[in-house]
Amino acid sequence: MQPVTSSHSGLLEGAKPLHETLPGRIALSVAATLFVAACAHVSIPLFFTPVPITLQTFAVILIGMVLGPVAGFSTMVLYLAEGAMGLPVFSPAGPGGMAHLLGPDAGFLFAYPLAAAAAGWIVRAMPRVVSRFSSAILAGIGSSIITFALGAGWLAHLLHLGSTAVWSLAVAPFLAGEAIKITAAAGIFSSMQKWRRS
């Protein structure tokens, strides 16, 4: 006599993981934008620069590494669209909405899709001989270079600043914090990779 098998178990065995389905990817991207928004609200204004300290770049780097270059880019475009529609996803230090996308830190915001894509691409392009953590550190550095370049460039254009002034306002005050955020994102990502393969 043949053993009785459940048709439901057969369906489950053939089902794709949630993150490989279109609805699952959409839900994952929306959840990722909420994570960036939560990190944006961890905000510390600085009296000497219009750009606040936030955890946004930490979220951008981590999302790019976890989701990959294409999904990371798309997620950050969705995040900017949410902010443009007036949803409270940007740092509370700014005006919010479209006005925030034209303000002093607009260059940083518009860099996020490229920065996430860079993090996702670099961490996947590194040779296998390089450890996951080292690959993630390099991905974070590459992502941050893009963020600082576009953020500082926009601020220089908006406020008509020279290179020394823009370095003091948009780059130097954030380097130590960025190093911590890169290390944290790399540690979380490498731990996730080990957990997936165990």
Rank of each mutant, 00 (worst) to 15 (best):
17 P>S: 10
44 I>E: 03
27 A>D: 05
46 L>N: 05
41 H>I: 05
68 G>H: 09
65 M>F: 06
46 L>K: 11
67 L>H: 01
25 R>L: 13
21 T>Q: 03
21 T>C: 06
45 P>C: 03
25 R>Q: 15
51 V>I: 15
54 T>L: 08
28 L>Y: 00
42 V>H: 06
47 F>I: 13
60 V>M: 04
27 A>Q: 07
61 I>D: 01
23 P>S: 02
23 P>V: 07
72 G>N: 09
37 A>G: 11
30 V>K: 00
20 E>D: 13
48 F>S: 13
33 T>E: 05
44 I>Q: 08
37 A>S: 14
39 C>I: 04
70 V>D: 09
18 L>A: 14
61 I>G: 04
52 P>R: 08
50 P>E: 07
33 T>C: 14
52 P>F: 05
15 A>S: 14
27 A>Y: 00
71 A>E: 13
40 A>C: 10
66 V>M: 11
68 G>I: 06
28 L>R: 08
72 G>F: 08
25 R>N: 14
55 L>V: 09
32 A>R: 00
38 A>C: 06
23 P>M: 07
63 I>P: 03
57 T>R: 01
48 F>T: 12
18 L>F: 15
71 A>T: 12
47 F>Y: 12
45 P>R: 07
21 T>E: 06
36 V>L: 12
70 V>S: 09
57 T>P: 01
40 A>E: 04
65 M>D: 08
62 L>Q: 12
47 F>W: 13
57 T>Y: 11
64 G>P: 06
30 V>A: 13
45 P>A: 09
70 V>H: 09
44 I>A: 10
25 R>S: 13
52 P>W: 08
16 K>N: 12
36 V>P: 01
55 L>N: 02
30 V>Q: 01
38 A>H: 12
18 L>R: 13
57 T>L: 14
69 P>R: 10
17 P>E: 10
49 T>L: 02
47 F>A: 15
52 P>S: 05
54 T>H: 08
61 I>E: 02
68 G>L: 11
35 F>V: 15
17 P>G: 05
39 C>E: 07
41 H>M: 05
42 V>D: 01
59 A>V: 11
71 A>N: 11
49 T>M: 07
59 A>I: 04
70 V>E: 14
41 H>Q: 14
71 A>H: 15
38 A>N: 03
61 I>N: 06
55 L>R: 02
70 V>W: 13
24 G>K: 00
